[in-house]
Design a protein around this nucleic acid. Structure first.
Lengths: 217, 217
DNA sequence: CTTTCAATACCGCATGACGGTATGTAAATA
DNA sequence: TATTTACATACCGTCATGCGGTATTGAAAG
């Protein structure tokens, strides 16, 4: 294929195709050749010019998946008009009410047979989201008195893992009812830590999302 | 090699070797040939006679890893002299004080670079341990009044995932201090659910274990 | 007690798929 | 024009798995 004057577009194309295939067939069952076949004329050389390995593509895909969500997290984290607890509440509200994941839900669910992709998201959550977004908020909450804990680093990990991974119906392949019940347990857990971050509007929306997911199975 | 009159021994050998290699090098970086090389004369055909695929070996290895722990869980679950809450406490005590995992800790830590093995354990925990061992105990606890929850199935999942996966220093590659703090958070979480299952003796032992793990890194 | 025979434990080469590399080429840029 | 860069093409080594074949077994038949 002819050389592209804007190579970012080629990178983007490779990532989009890879994302779709990784979700549909799983990372391990997607071959480089599969990706090439959906690239519309591009070759193996193109891929290995822009990415150093298949795993490198996986990392980039994962980053892209979490990018938008992370932007939202950063905005809330950096506001100065909210207490730590209020920020936490806002995060959960945002991620449920206006999820980037709407398309994820409709594209090709079921990470429960996709070890590598799941692991990659898992790692990103622990190594990036927890320390860079949740932890600072907990630390602020400790200072402003809205949050009380002796172990903010560990608590931030537990919170984000529970919220982002465990209650994610795409990962655990849960029904609408199961997701709803998980969120009720999550709410209770947060209350146990003295945090009241889940309200009824959020629960209603969650049921809606889970229903969408079920339909596209 | 000569044919073995007791083929279970061959199966067992293959599993032992595979387990060691999967832990040391990771599942994906262990080739069938690697396994053969450590089998003492057995061939590729032997492996594929007893197992239908490499993945099949992984499943069998995982089963064997959790087998002993599951036996313990079954014994406690089936006792008739304890309340639900007491059983929970005993489970955590057992799994910490007398861990089968002592050897796992010394053999070859670090599942944080072993997506497939981790995923396999993860799946086993959710699909087997939670519903078959923890859930019945919660249900009993609801009946005998020692445990209160509206969502026993979801709570059992959350508890076992947090206890077995999140606080596992082998999986998250935590230091002794980090593991200790995680367990403190876990304790607080359980207290939030009205469950008092962690005592000081357990915390002391946990610090010990984490130290062992650190030494063998 | 011996012979027969089917089941099964095991061998090891063949094969095709796959991830990755080396090298070539032409367009873009400086 | 010279250099860099975006891609193409041919090729390599490794790997999981398939498969035709052989040797050993245990049990039943003679």
């Amino acid at each position: 294929m002819a050389r592209n004057k804007h190579p970012e577009e080629t990178v983007s194309l490779i990532l989009d195709v890879s994302y779709r295939l990784f979700m549909e067939k799983g990372y391990e069952h997607t071959s480089i050749q599969d990706i090439i076949d959906h690239l519309g004329g591009l070759s193996k050389g193109a891929i290995y010019h822009h990415f150093k390995s298949k795993e490198d593509i996986l990392v980039a895909v994962t980053d892209k998946m979490t990018e938008e969500s992370n932007k939202m997290l950063a905005v809330i984290r950096d506001r100065t008009d909210l207490t730590g607890e209020e920020k936490l509440k806002m995060i959960f509200k945002e991620s449920i009410l206006r999820p980037v994941q709407d398309d994820i839900f409709t594209v090709a669910p079921n990470l429960s047979n996709n070890p590598r992709l799941l692991f990659s998201i898992f790692k990103e959550t622990v190594q990036d989201a927890a320390p860079h977004y949740i932890l600072p908020i907990l630390e602020q909450g400790i200072k402003d008195g809205s949050i009380r804990t002796d172990y903010p680093a560990e608590l931030s990990e537990l919170i984000i893992l529970t919220a982002n991974i465990w209650t994610n119906p795409m990962i655990f392949d849960n029904s609408a009812e199961e997701s709803y019940r998980k969120f009720m347990v999550f709410r209770q857990m947060m209350q146990g830590f003295g945090l009241d971050v889940v309200d009824d509007e959020m629960l209603a929306r969650l049921q809606e999302l889970a229903a969408i997911y079920q339909k596209n199975k």
